[in-house]
Design a protein around this nucleic acid. Structure first.
Lengths: 221, 221
DNA sequence: ACCACTTACTAGCAAATTGCAAATAACAAG
DNA sequence: CTTGTTATTTGCAATTTGCTAGTAAGTGGT
């Protein structure tokens, strides 16, 4: 219709999730520029069409440049838009969620980063509360039929650690033996020959994901 | 960083799905303007921040104005972006999928609309093949644990019709008696007192969704 | 009126899956 | 060598699912 179309601001926001003390945490960063300068918010930034081949690339770049992080799993959540979310006017933000092990975040805490357990991840600026809640909802759903929670762990992990990751994301306890049986039947992990973790009373076998990327199951965990 | 940020074109595309002869169909529309004028593509259009409160509103508006359709269920799929998808350069399109009963589409076939069964919904312009395939993937997943397929049907439907809708979306046959049992246990539909369909040999009880909106189950269908 | 045919709907049991609890294993600490 | 703790396996009960047959309620034909 009209040639001079209003082109809204396009940004990306990333809900970085990790596991700490058996609980899911959201990583937030102190903003250094207005609006909401000085407040902690989701890691985000502008999409730069001239340098980002896609919004996914923009998300990865922002995560790397602003927080020094690289997610083990980075998936698009959805796009949030409207006039309400940003005081600068109508805007659209493509939200992503990124999963990575605690150690990766701990290394970068210098960069104004903070990890919030879920119950304290509220009161964020913009519509970031909504984005976080949608991200968790999606992850919970997806965790029920995929290897998603494994991306919160280091490459090598024990079955117990994996179960705790599932429990943390799903928000409910799982039966130990039933979980082992299922994970075994689904063939998603493979033992790391000879490697055992000595963190607990009895040493535990270490495993890694069979495939580097997320896999979806036919059944539910 | 830079004050003069490039703002990419923002559009919406809607994957309209319906059920015809027990199969899922994608509704496409003949484009009247370049690029790809004269070719059938997904229904889509520009987001107009001055008139659309959100991209969801834009999707509903485009669907209504360009095709005269109102989806019974309209949910955001994801955003597609990059230089490859549109010859006009870097663009971003927020894709939605909309479900509605066949009758609603049949009424509007005047508007250059066409319904394609899934196996013939290929060779679409832009990245619309990808969008369609992602939409179907999402719907398949979601159908397994929600009332999504019911939105492909008229308000009143029989249990057989509902099963056929699930089968069409899931792409596999379901056991009749097990399906009835499950739907009954999940309490998603309620009988329309006294109303029966006489379309088949033995008249069948008509039902409607218990809730107007989509519901997600704990279990899988 | 009776019969064959079709689809709706119900019932019952076998097979598969899941939940639970006990048994066993491997180590650390005292 | 005993106690304590976590890992891992095993066996069975409880639940869920798949399947098959039976009954119900119409239509259309003879």
């Amino acid at each position: 219709m009209n040639q001079e179309l209003i082109r809204p601001i396009l940004t990306v926001d990333i809900v970085v999730l990790t596991l700490h003390e058996q609980r899911v945490h959201v990583v937030v960063q102190k903003r250094d520029k207005p609006p909401h300068a000085g407040h902690f918010a989701l890691i985000g930034g502008y999409v730069r069409p001239e340098e980002d081949v896609s919004t996914a690339a923009a998300a990865a770049r922002v995560l790397r440049d602003k927080a020094g992080l690289t997610a083990r799993l980075l998936e698009q959540l959805m796009t949030f838009s409207g006039t309400e979310r940003d005081p600068r006017g109508w805007s659209a933000s493509v939200a992503y969620y990124g999963l990575l092990p605690y150690q990766d975040v701990a290394q970068q805490v210098r960069r104004n980063l903070k990890m919030l357990p879920l119950d304290r991840a509220t009161g964020l600026p913009f519509d970031h509360d909504t984005i976080v809640s949608k991200a968790l909802e999606r992850c919970r759903r997806r965790a029920a039929y995929s290897s998603l929670p494994a991306f919160l762990l280091p490459i090598a992990f024990t079955q117990s650690a994996l179960r705790h990751a599932y429990e943390a994301v799903l928000g409910r306890a799982l039966n130990d033996s039933a979980f082992r049986r299922k994970i075994d039947e689904l063939r998603v992990i493979e033992p790391l020959a000879g490697n055992v973790s000595k963190a607990t009373a009895r040493p535990a076998q270490l495993y890694r994901l069979g495939r580097g990327h997320i896999v979806e199951f036919d059944r539910t965990v």
